[in-house]
Every structure is written in C-alpha cells, then in structure tokens.
Design a protein around this nucleic acid. Structure first.
Lengths: 108, 108
DNA sequence: AATATTAATCGTAATATTGCAATAAACAGA
DNA sequence: TCTGTTTATTGCAATATTACGATTAATATT
C-alpha cells in the first residue's frame, strides 16, 4: 500500500518520525548544514553548492519546510531560508529524550 | 528517478541521512521505544504491541537492522532484539553535533 | 516422525520519493 | 512594457516504501 498507518501511533511518535523522515536524505542534511554554517539566512545559492538541479533542490527545500525545520522569507526576487527555531529546539529535545533512554545494558 | 545520488555527498551526511531515514516511520520509532522501555531484549511480542501484521513488523525490523540501530540474536525458535550500542551512541553524537550547531540568531 | 511455534521471505498492490526538463510565477531593472 | 533573474510548480519516468497474505525455514514439543 505504501501508505503509513499514522492514526495508530501516538502524536509524539508521528512527530519524531516526520522530522526524521525529513532528515532522511543526504541533500537535505547538506542543506541544513549549509544553513547552520552560514549561521544566518541564505538566499538561493544552495543550487550552486549542491550537485542537484534547481528543481530538485526546490523540492528538498519544500520537504524541509513541510516538516517545519526551515522557514522561507521572500525578499524581492529571491527567498531567504533559515532554520525554524521552534521546531529545531523541539525536535532536538525529542530526539535527545529518545536517545538518552538507552543505558548500556544490552543482553545481546 | 527515485534513486538517491549518494556518491555526491559526504560519508557523514550519508550516515546521518541513513539513520534518520530508518527513524522516519512511526512504527520503527514505536519498536525502538518498546526496546528501550523493556531495557532488555524482547522476542516477537512486538507483533502484539504494534497495529501491524507480522510480515510488516518483520520488514520494519529489517530496516532497523540494516541501519544497524538494532541487533537480532536467535534464541531457539524466537529472536531476541536489542539496541546496537555502537550505532546508537555514534548516531546520538552525530545528531547532537548537528542540532547543537544552531544558535538562535535567525534573521527571519 | 509429525506437529506446532516463531520469524523471515516472496509476491503483489498501492502509494511515495527522487530527479530533471520544461514551464510558470513573481519581481527587479532597463 | 520588455527582459532578465530567481524560485516554484508541473509532468513524467524510475525506483523505493509500506502493507499484507501466503509460504518457507528453523527449531521445539509431542
């Protein structure tokens, strides 16, 4: 079916999965790293940094925007992208919460 | 084409993306949470906990195993799953490294 | 040996993702 | 207004994912 049974899982499980899914492509990781590196908004030079066409980059940006990991502000002809602070912090916290639950006592 | 251009990205970008992709489904988050909750190996009662068929759960377990987030040990007729400590710690570190790079100075 | 239990795999259908060329939309400057 | 610049969208093809029933494989139990 290829369609996830979202309704059977908790809100937080779905949120974590949604964020993780958005992070689940090297191009999108690269986009975020670029945003973090410049430590400010960037305006469109992403296409030159990435080994992908403009259309494809735009699609990946859309995916990140849909997961609310980034925001895009229109500035004249170009668009200014930056990390969405709220989702970023929340996701960081959720991920840490999960990753911290493990305490090295595996039986296998 | 539906095929990711992995070769154009760095090793660490691909690793992060691979782990994130494995986390990118609520069922797989639920599986990991269950493993963390029991804090030990569980064998197959996952199928009863999750709202999915045995075949589907097995598929999700395979995805987590392929990302090396979990390990599976055969124990008689059943299989014992647990978190893979190495990948877990490494991924946690990589994710934190990325998430910590953001310092609240958004211009938009 | 025959049967039951458990988990993986196969086959299949529906849907999603990835990628790009082509086009559209929105705006700036001449 | 016309032209260039920048980003989004559309349309399409190739491949991947999700889900499940049916089957297989491996080991226990009787």
């Amino acid at each position: 079916m290829g369609v996830t049974k979202i309704e059977n899982f908790t809100k937080s499980q779905n949120h974590l999965a949604m964020v993780a899914k958005a992070l689940g492509h090297p191009a999108r990781i690269a986009i975020l790293e670029h945003l973090l590196k410049l430590n400010s908004c960037i305006c469109g030079d992403l296409v030159e940094v990435l080994p992908l066409s403009q259309a494809t980059v735009s699609q990946h940006l859309k995916a990140l925007k849909e997961a609310k990991l980034i925001k895009g502000n229109i500035e004249g002809t170009s668009v200014c992208y930056c990390i969405d602070a709220d989702t970023w912090k929340y996701s960081k916290q959720m991920l840490n919460q999960m990753f911290d639950k493990y305490h090295d006592n595996s039986c296998c």
